[in-house]
Each structure stands twice: as structure tokens, then as C-alpha cells.
Write a protein that binds this DNA or RNA. Structure first.
Lengths: 201, 201
DNA sequence: TATATTTGTCCGAATTTTCGGAAAACATCG
DNA sequence: CGATGTTTTCCGAAAATTCGGACAAATATA
């Protein structure tokens, strides 16, 4: 599941309160007290989002934002600003933060916002995975004509055998070739009909 | 582009103000004064999001929400609630609204929220398109073994010819077969080398 | 158990495919 | 134009594939 929330917040009280809220909502908080501890978790395949305070003793939330964007520009960062600090919030969005929250943040709003961000993250990751899959199947192959034709024939034969539950005669009909020919082809690829039977291995 | 915003708002003044704001932000507002006019635009392939007022004379924003969800559960609806009407806003989210805005809404917040929703929409549609594509290529084919082998061989030959700029000799080497054989195969599919030359048609 | 159907294997003739060699057709260039 | 290199077509023998027929073994059906 994509429901991790990496929390970067130096105030222990606030941090714990956030953890509590998230746990009640079936989210998976990963609390850290600063950038240093959070760094290792920030990767391009992180299945979650990042919630960071802006004002922290030894670094700014904007440092976090920059770092995250260098690792993965599509990893949502939600920034927690001081109360009604509109200019900072605007700058956060402009710099590529996914959203911002005003301190003190209302638990419902916090969860809503995180859910949206998590949903966004889930979609982005899903998208990447499907794209990879598509590229794999659509990638221009290489190799001998004979080799490629053979692998393709093998695939077709297996598909037909599976579809016909390992019955060679039926598969032959499906493929529009005489039974014997199918046996010949199968011999070439060392295919055994038995291996394709669903019922009673 | 996925940047349409279907606006459902009965107050002409507010509606126009929103339209103005969106136009300045390169979004594409589609203003309507009520559900009846908006209905036709709400489809599962709508490349945008919906911004609806909740309190309207002859129907509620929740009617809109229900209708939208029946057409496409992944079509974001942003609901505009009265000032600090928290319970209604919470209900909106709970019922599946993407987000809500409090009236009177700050232009920046409005735009930010819409952008997030549009981004979400874009991802959802992209996802669907890639999935369709993937299903197409992965779909179990049918037809004679010979037919399927032939179309595959044809594809390979064309791919090789394209890769070698229509040079038969080079394509033959790439495919690991003698030139003559390639000519034979090409004759079978009525392929002409000239047709695959990039340089000087 | 008797009978029918299906499976897997082998054979061999008819057919198809492969592929080297040769030559015609074409293009390029000094 | 003539020399040179490439593309394309044609030929035909060697090699591979197809596929009907026959049959024993395994399975299913009555």
C-alpha cells in the first residue's frame, strides 16, 4: 500500500500528536526529528508522501523540498507553515510543494490533505509501473529472424495448448493445422501436452 | 490538455469572477448556472474537473456529486461551501468530493486546489489510456497458426527494413539470413524495399 | 469387460522453403 | 562512356516442413 507519511518535525509533542492522528486513520507515519534522519527514506520509489515543518532549528523545510525534488519531482511534499503565513505558503507551492498546512493544523484537514497527496503518489507510481510494462512488451527486439519466429511460434503453441487444456487435437484444430504437424512443432520446442493440463496434473 | 474546469454556480457575479481568475491562470473555465446545463458535459472522459457550489436554488451540490460519481468515480468534484461551514465540508469529503473551498474563496487557494485536482484527473486518464494500450498488445489473439506467424514475420521484416533504411542486404544481415531468402520472404508479403527508405523517397 | 475415442509416435511422399550462383537492371562516379 | 558497386530477379538443387495414413498405448464410455 502507498500510505506512508514521512514526518519531519522537530517538536516532539506535535510530532507525536501527528503520529497518533495518522495511526487512527490507518496511515503509516514514519516520524523523524529532522532532515538528517529523513534523508535515507527519501527515494524515487518511496511509497508515500512527505510532511515537513518549515521552520526548524538547523535547517528549513525548503531544504527538504529541494532535496526531495532532486530525488523524485513527483514525490509530494506537504509543508507546515506558521499560522496565517500566507507569503511563505505561496512560496512553498510555487517551489513545487504539493500543498501546505497552517499550524496548528486541524486533524481532519491534515488527513484529507495527506490522502490527496497519497492518492497522487499512488497514481504516479502506478503510472510508472504500467509504462515500464508497456515498454517491455513494445520494445524493439533483436536477434535472428529464425530465433524470433521460433519464440513467437512457441508462444502461440503454448497459448493454444493452455486454452485447450493440453489437448493436442483440439489445439491443432484451433490453430488450423493437422494434428501431426502440431506434434512436429511441439517436438521442435520440447513441449509436452501433459504440462498444460489444468485438470489432474 | 487536461485543464477544463466545469463551473456550476448560480450567482452570476461570483461565476464571472471565477472565470476571470481561471483565465488568467491559463485554465479553461466552462461556466454554467446549474446542474441542467452542466449535465451534458459530465462524462467519464471529461478532461477536466468540476467546481460546484453547494447551496443553489433548485438543487444541491450533492446532487451534482452523486451524478458525477455515477458517470465517473474518478472525476474530481470540488465543492464550495459557505463560510466556515465545517460539517458540510466534512460531509462533502466523506461523500467523495475531491476537495472543498470556503466562500468567499481566495483566488490563490482556488487555483492551487484546482491544479491539484486537474493533476489528479490527468493522471487518472493517463493511467486508463496506458492500461488500454497494454491490454491491446497483451490480448490473446486468435486465427490460424500460419496467419499469426505470417503477420509476425511481416512485422519483423518491416522493422528490419525500417531500421536499415530500406537496404535489403543490410536488413538480411541484421536478420541473419541470406539476401535471397529475404527477397523470397518479401515477395510473399509484397514488400518493396523502396517504401522503407527515409532518404530521398 | 467390451468398445470407442483419444493420444503419442513413426514413416514417407508431396510440397514448400532455403540459399548459392548467375545475370539483368540500376545507380554512382571519375 | 566505361568501370564499379548495389539492387533485384530468376533458376534449380538441397534441405526442411507438411501432413495423411497406420498403429500401439492410454483413456474414456457403455
Amino acid at each position: 500500500m502507498t500510505n506512508k507519511v514521512l514526518i519531519i518535525e522537530d517538536d516532539p509533542a506535535l510530532r507525536n500528536s501527528i503520529v497518533q492522528t495518522l495511526e487512527l486513520e490507518e496511515l503509516e507515519p514514519i516520524p523523524t526529528n529532522g532532515f538528517v534522519h529523513a534523508r535515507r527514506t527519501i527515494r524515487s520509489n518511496f511509497r508515500g508522501v512527505i510532511l515537513t515543518d518549515i521552520k526548524m532549528p538547523d535547517h528549513s523545510g525548503f531544504d527538504v523540498l529541494r532535496f526531495v525534488q532532486s530525488r523524485d519531482p513527483d514525490l509530494p511534499v506537504i509543508m507546515v507553515t506558521g499560522h496565517s503565513d500566507v507569503p511563505t505558503a505561496m512560496r512553498a507551492i510555487k517551489d513545487g510543494a504539493y500543498d501546505y498546512l497552517e499550524k496548528p493544523c486541524d486533524p481532519d484537514t491534515l488527513v484529507d490533505t495527506l490522502r490527496r497527496a497519497l492518492d497522487h503518489r499512488r497514481l504516479v507510481l502506478e503510472n510508472r509501473e504500467i509504462r515500464d510494462e508497456l515498454n517491455q512488451v513494445a520494445a524493439p527486439q533483436d536477434g535472428t529472424l529464425a530465433e524470433r519466429m521460433e519464440t513467437h511460434e512457441r508462444d502461440i503453441l503454448e497459448e493454444a495448448l493452455i486454452a485447450e487444456d493440453g489437448k493436442v487435437s483440439a489445439a491443432a484444430i484451433r490453430l488450423g493445422i493437422p494434428r501431426n504437424t502440431l506434434y512436429d512443432r511441439m517436438a521442435k520446442y520440447n513441449l509436452v501436452a501433459k504440462a498444460y493440463r489444468r485438470t489432474s496434473d
